[in-house]
């Protein structure tokens, strides 16, 4: 059941899936990475020094874009009600959704960061730290994203709200993920992964409670 649920979620969320548009956050991510050199000038050492942080900010902003498609359509179409009738707990549905969301954007995001690293003149060592950090941090971002998406799913103003709700919660992930760049410190990446795990552990319960709350009105 869980595997079928995961495959179904993936078929919706992956690029070219029925809910399509999963390429949009990636293109947006690259566009932000492109904008930054225009704003500060194409000075190669400056870009190399600050580019890792720019990739992190761009990844965070890009993770806001898909939030309104993560949960809201299924809530409207009654998919969660159907699953509840079959006896699948909301917590399980949300946990699977976090995994599907992560699978649908994290690997592509890592690929796109390699491109962005070239644009921003990052060294190979920095790129490795950025990739390791993103690998550790994106599960946490996916967990916050699904939680926020579940909380705002029933609201018309949800899309505008979700960015404001996500950013403060994502601060620790950003601090440790990007903090690793400063000193080439893999300990910070381990901490980033630890925070990710905490967020992943919270998401099913908070998101599941939100789905039930939205259903009961």
């Amino acid at each position: 059941m869980i595997v079928r649920l995961l495959l179904r979620d993936l078929s919706q969320l992956l690029p070219g899936g029925r809910r399509g548009g999963s390429m949009l956050p990636l293109l947006f991510f690259l566009a932000v990475a492109m904008l930054y050199p225009f704003a500060v000038g194409p000075d190669a050492p400056l870009l190399a020094r600050t580019g890792g942080g720019v990739i992190w900010v761009a990844a965070l902003l890009a993770s806001i874009l898909p939030l309104d498609r993560l949960v809201a359509p299924d809530l409207e179409q009654g998919v969660f009600d159907q699953l509840a009738l079959r006896g699948v707990a909301e917590e399980v549905v949300i946990a699977v959704r976090v995994l599907a969301h992560w699978l649908s954007f994290a690997p592509l995001l890592l690929l796109a960061s390699v491109l962005a690293a070239a644009l921003l003149n990052l060294s190979g060592e920095t790129l490795k730290l950025v990739l390791a950090g993103l690998l550790a941090g994106t599960p946490g971002l996916a967990a916050i994203g699904v939680t926020i998406a579940a909380l705002t799913a029933g609201l018309r103003t949800g899309a505008a709200l979700s960015g404001l709700l996500l950013i403060p919660l994502a601060v620790p992930v950003l601090i440790f993920g990007a903090g690793a760049l400063e000193r080439a410190d893999y300990g910070a990446i381990a901490l980033c992964g630890a925070i990710s795990l905490v967020l992943v552990a919270i998401a099913p319960f908070a998101g599941g409670a939100a789905i039930r709350a939205a259903r009961e009105g």
Partner: peptide, 23 residues
């Protein structure tokens, strides 16, 4: 902002409560 839009749109008041706890 969340509590206001929930109140305006008649959503469940458990939504902001969940966000309060997550925060």
């Amino acid at each position: 902002a969340l509590a206001q839009s929930v109140a305006r749109e008649g959503g469940s008041s458990r939504i902001p409560a969940i966000f309060g706890l997550v925060g």
